[in-house]
Structures are given as structure tokens and as C-alpha cells.
Nucleic acid binder design. Sequence first.
DNA 1: CGTCAAGAAAGTGTCGACACTATTGCGTTC
DNA 2: GAACGCAATAGTGTCGACACTTTCTTGACG
Lengths: 257, 257
Amino acid sequence: MTGRVETGADSGPSVANEAETRRSADSSERAYLTIRKLLVEFKLKPGERINEVQLSRSLGVSRTPIREALNRLASEGFVSLTPNRGFFVRSLSTEGLLDLYELRSIIESAAFRLMCERADDSEIDRLRQYWEAIVDVYPNQPPDIILAEDEGFHLLIAELSGNPELVGQLSSINARIRFIRRIQIEHPSHDKAQITSHSAIVEAAVKRDAENGAKLLREHIEMTVSATQQALKDALLKVFAPDNGAELKRRRRARDA
Amino acid sequence: MTGRVETGADSGPSVANEAETRRSADSSERAYLTIRKLLVEFKLKPGERINEVQLSRSLGVSRTPIREALNRLASEGFVSLTPNRGFFVRSLSTEGLLDLYELRSIIESAAFRLMCERADDSEIDRLRQYWEAIVDVYPNQPPDIILAEDEGFHLLIAELSGNPELVGQLSSINARIRFIRRIQIEHPSHDKAQITSHSAIVEAAVKRDAENGAKLLREHIEMTVSATQQALKDALLKVFAPDNGAELKRRRRARDA
DNA sequence: CGTCAAGAAAGTGTCGACACTATTGCGTTC
DNA sequence: GAACGCAATAGTGTCGACACTTTCTTGACG
């Protein structure tokens, strides 16, 4: 994604005081970031038509920057555009998720191999240090932090591959699957094998064992069909019945006690 | 790229009489296709700022659909957007090309492996038939046809992988490197090893020899640094000095005779 | 009840105008 | 010549209005 907008969505804008840093050409970018967040988190439901007029009102800008943002998000896979009917939120389906996870696995294992070939020792050490800095507290962090740290780990590998296209691809995939990954991390069955596999991946990196590391990554990333379906159930519950979802959880807890 | 615009850019619109099929919501799509073609072919020079007003005049539409198209093309890697300064044509550089070729190699070899796992015999036969239908005339076709047939061959492999994300990714990469690939095909040093490698790839597919096929694909696709630099020289000549390029070719021919 | 047609309402696509920002051109000074 | 400042020009970002398309509502009919 070398043609990305210069202000970049994934590196995050600086959290400056808005009144001080308010520049022109802000509305489209603000719209983009806000709508993207809604889409990443499925705050807008799968298949839902996006209402530009409503968004325009709630963001306090005219429809033009909304449409500009939506056109960008269409090309990024978050929405689809049907002429004269509008923009529709991407679907949330087993097949779609499996495809994305598979693509992620392909990108990440290739990145790992390239990292082993190309990175110098101090660069590999960056990965080791990243993991060592967080390994002890990682399992006790809230899901959002776990997710961010996990993504950071994997993006660092992509960065160390020396191919910026891989970084861009992985970053884009991350955003599209973040919602389901967050749900997986929240799930009680989410085990601590993540720690073991991250540590093993780091070890393979230090040894520059490309094939073993790539294999570990694949195992770490790829999901079975049934696991995907289970995660999807939880995701759909969260999307379509957020209150009922909480109610169901309360009932499950009462029953289990 | 599951969020693609429904009319799709890569499958090509039907070549209908425009007065008959003129629908509403056409301007943005027309702008998109026209500008994209300009960008694929580097008719707009690397680094050049895109002038919306000029495009608006030459396409006979207002600036709004131009901007909508450009926002899509920004997210697709053809242009970059700098706020208040406009959209700029993607660069044409050795590193950038190597990165894209590498990504293409990663995607294609993974697709080949998945195809060998998943495709049934009739599907693998599609690939064989595709190649057999063109192999005899292939080397004598004009560069544009060779390029289209080659892309079709590789996209069919991606399709047979069963992962639409891979198809979308490969399609997108193809568009971004098409210009340089066309130049390579035109080059006198472009040899007929392409035929041998395509045939060998088909043979590996028929045998479902995933690893050998992936290796052949990688060798078929990946470029050395020096080959990339040579191709880039020709590309830059074509972009920045199209007339001088023709003049230089005439002089070379006179000198060689 | 279901189906259809017509009209109203809502939403989409594009337009041209305006405010703002960046670039260019020109004159002055050293 | 280079550097600077200012004004003019050109281009970008957004606005609200208008035309067009789609969706929704309502009434009539079988």
C-alpha cells in the first residue's frame, strides 16, 4: 500500500489538542478515521447500508468528506459500493474469515523467512526484546492490550523482512480481522499457548531457523473451520444482540454456579 | 479486496454502446477507470501531482467524481494523497518494484500450493487447457496479448486456490507492475524461457507437485536487482522521453546494421 | 391475506460556488 | 547572482443545492 494517504491510518495520529492543531483538510481524514473505527469494530452491522446523511450529521461535516472516506474504505475492503444504492458494510462470515486468516498466514510466514535471511543480529534482537519486555505481564493484560501487543509483535516481524509491502498488507489484514480476534482473546477457552508459541517463534528467529519459525507461525495463526464458526457465533451475538449477549452471559454464570 | 466496488475494475465493463447503457452513477466509475488506466501505464509521470481541474475538463465531469476515483486509487496504491497539496503518482523505483515482485512471488507460490491441495482434477485440467490453447501462438503475439495471457494464466492458479483474497491481491499487484512487465516483454533479451517455465508449471500442477511448482513459479517471477534496474531504465526512458526513446532505438538499429 | 401501482420520502451522485492553502511570478535588496 | 517579501494565481477541500434513483408507504383490488 505504497500509495497510502500521507497521514496514515495505522500509525495513529498524534493525540494533540485539536483546537491547537486544527488544520484545513481535516474533515475527510477525521471522517475516515471515525468511520473506519466503526467498521473495524462492526459497530455498523454486516451488510448494513451506510447512511451518509446520518454520518454527516453526527460528524458535523458535509457529505463530501464522508463519501471521500467511504471511497477509500471501499478499496480497503471495509465496505462495498453499489452504484445508486450506496456503501454496504463488509460481511462477517466463516469463509471470509478463513480466507483472511489464510492470507495472513501466508504473509507472515513469508515475512519470517525473509527476516531470517535479511535482518542483522541487532534487528533480530529487537524482536527478542519486544517479547521479553511484555511476556510476564502479557497474559494478565486486558484483551485490547493483548491484541495490540500481539499485532505489534507480528508487525515487527514484517518490518524486519525489509519489504514494506508486506508490512502494509499485514497491517490491512489486521484491521479487517481485529474484531474477531478480540472476541477470541476474550473467550474463556483462549489459552496461554499464545505465550509458548510467541516464545518459540522468538527462539526460532534468534536461531534464524526460517522453516521452523514459519511453521510455528502458521500453527499460531491458522484456525480450524469449527473454531472459526465458534468465534463467528460469538461475534454475531455481539454485533446483533449486544444486550442479549450480556444477558446470556449472566444466565450462563448463574447456571454454572 | 472483498469490499471492491461492485462494478469491478479488473473484469472490465462490457463494451456496450455508451448512449444506450448510460446509467446514472457513471461519472465516478468512468473517472476511476480512465485515471486508473493512465496510472497503470504511467501516462502520468512518477511523482507528478495530479491536476483535478484538468482531469475534470478533459473527462467532462465535475471535480467530485474525480476526487472520489482518486481516493479509491490512493487506497489501491496508485497514488498518494497529501492534504492540501493533492494526489501524487506513485513512484517508479528499483526497490518498489522488487518489493512488489517479491509480494507477487509470495502470493503466487502460496496459491499454487493451495491449488494442488484443493482443486479437483477437472479444475487442474482448466489450467492445462488454458495453457495448451495458447502455447503455440504465444511467442508470436504482440506484447499486450502475451501480457494478458500470462496474467490470465497466473490468475487462474490463484482462482483455483479457492481463496478469493489471493485472487484480489494478485490482481491488484498485477495492475501496479503491468507497465514494467510490458517493457520487459518488449525487450530483445526477453527469451522464450517463459514458455518452458509455464509448461513446467502446468506439469507440476497436473502431478500436484506443490513444492516443485511453487519453486518454478518463484524462479519464473522473481527478478534480480540488476534485471530490475535495467528494466527500470527502459521504463523511465519511456516515461520521461518517449520520443527520444524511439530515436535511440533507431540509432541502435542503424549502428548494429 | 397477498399483490400491484402510484406517490411521497429518503438517499445517492454530481454540480458549481466559496473559503482556504499552496504555488508562482515579480520586484526589491544585498 | 541569491534571498526575501508580497501579490496574484492556481489548486484543494468542503459546502449546500439540485437532479436522479431507490425505498417506503398507502390504497385499491382480487
